[in-house]
């Protein structure tokens, strides 16, 4: 398929959506490297990527709807992402919890009975 030229508002809209999306993806990756411990690192990619991918997908929907035909099937990616992002985050957090990875010192443990969440009896 030829890349068709976009005009005026569509050009600006698509480019800014893609840039915003990639910015959030970048911030998510920076967070992955910068936050202090495993559990905190988990927060960055699960959340920032949703908006990152969302921005790029929105840009793609608008681009293909304007240039060729009405295009919605990018929305499927969003559905899959919303279904899988929390589940993978949950499994990683669970693994981190059961392996008792080191947490940053100022983490407060507010559980009444921590043993109710561990493997040991």
């Amino acid at each position: 398929m030829n890349m068709t030229e976009l005009h005026g508002w569509a050009d600006w809209l698509v480019s800014s959506l893609i840039i915003i999306g990639s910015l959030f993806a970048l911030i998510g990756s920076v967070g992955l490297a910068r936050l202090p411990d495993f559990m905190a690192r988990l927060h960055a990619p699960t959340k920032s990527t949703t908006l990152g991918v969302g921005g790029v997908i929105l840009g793609s929907i608008i681009y293909f709807s304007v240039t060729t035909a009405f295009s919605w099937h990018e929305l499927l990616i969003t559905i899959f992402l919303f279904l899988t992002a929390p589940i993978s985050a949950h499994l990683l957090a669970k693994a981190g919890l059961h392996l008792e990875l080191k947490r940053v010192e100022n983490t407060r443990d507010l559980r009444a009975q921590p043993n109710q969440y561990s493997d040991e009896d």
Binding site: P36, V104, L110
Partner: peptide
């Protein structure tokens, strides 16, 4: 809420101070 949460996390990541207060909550 996901939109707001993204902005929140981005602010925490990008702010120079690293005084976050993590907690395990029941």
């Amino acid at each position: 809420d996901i939109l707001i949460s993204n902005l929140n996390i981005a602010a925490i990541i990008l702010l120079p101070s690293r005084h976050i207060k993590p907690a395990l909550i029941e």
